[in-house]
Structure formats: C-alpha cells, structure tokens
Simulated assay, not measured.
Amino acid sequence: MMDEHFDRNYQVGRAELHAGIDALGRRLWREASALFNAIHRINFSAPWTPPRSP
C-alpha cells in the first residue's frame, strides 16, 4: 500500500518535471529563434534597399 502511494506520487512528480523541462525547451527555442531572426535581418538589411511593406 505504501509502495503504491509512493509510486503514484513519484509518477505525478516525474510527469510534472518532464512537462516543465519541455516547456522550458520550447521557450528557449522560441527566444533563440527570435534572436537569430533579428540578427539575420540586421546583418542582411542594406541601407539602400527600400523597406518591405507587410
């Protein structure tokens, strides 16, 4: 009985930990992607080209 409670709590905690790690990875990927896109825009924008309209 005690083992069942321990295992249930362990599995719930482990699932929450993995969900948190996944969310952190997604956030880091999103922020890094935005950073690299900004660097790319700055690096390849020439002052003589007209700005693009959205």
Rank of each mutant, 00 (worst) to 15 (best):
M1Y: 06
M1T: 09
M1S: 12
M1A: 13
M2T: 13
M2Q: 15
D3S: 15
D3A: 15
D3R: 11
E4Y: 07
E4N: 10
H5S: 15
F6E: 09
F6S: 10
D7L: 15
D7T: 13
D7H: 11
D7P: 00
R8L: 11
N9A: 13
N9C: 12
Y10W: 04
Y10A: 05
Y10H: 07
Q11H: 12
Q11P: 00
V12F: 07
V12G: 02
G13H: 01
G13Y: 02
G13T: 02
G13F: 02
A15H: 10
A15W: 10
A15N: 08
E16T: 08
E16Q: 14
E16V: 05
L17W: 12
H18Y: 10
H18T: 14
H18V: 12
A19R: 14
A19V: 07
A19T: 07
A19Q: 10
A19P: 00
A19L: 07
A19H: 07
G20L: 01
G20I: 02
G20T: 01
I21L: 08
D22E: 13
D22N: 09
D22G: 01
A23T: 04
A23V: 01
A23H: 05
A23Y: 04
L24R: 08
L24Y: 04
L24G: 03
L24H: 06
G25V: 04
G25A: 08
G25D: 03
R26H: 05
R27A: 06
R27S: 07
R27N: 05
R27C: 01
L28P: 00
L28M: 05
L28E: 04
L28I: 06
W29E: 13
W29K: 14
W29Y: 10
R30E: 08
R30S: 06
R30A: 09
R30C: 02
E31N: 04
E31Q: 05
E31Y: 01
E31P: 00
E31A: 03
A32M: 09
A32Q: 12
S33I: 05
S33K: 12
A34H: 03
A34F: 01
A34E: 07
A34M: 06
L35C: 05
F36I: 12
F36L: 14
F36N: 06
F36V: 13
N37V: 06
N37I: 08
N37L: 11
N37T: 11
A38W: 08
A38T: 12
A38S: 11
I39Q: 10
H40D: 13
H40K: 14
H40Q: 13
R41L: 06
R41C: 00
R41F: 01
R41Y: 01
I42Q: 03
I42N: 00
N43V: 08
N43Q: 12
N43E: 10
F44I: 01
F44R: 01
F44N: 03
S45T: 07
A46S: 11
P47N: 00
W48Y: 06
W48V: 02
W48A: 01
T49G: 00
T49E: 09
P50A: 04
P51L: 05
P51D: 00
P51Q: 03
P51H: 00
R52W: 07
S53C: 11
S53P: 00
P54H: 15
P54Y: 15
P54L: 15
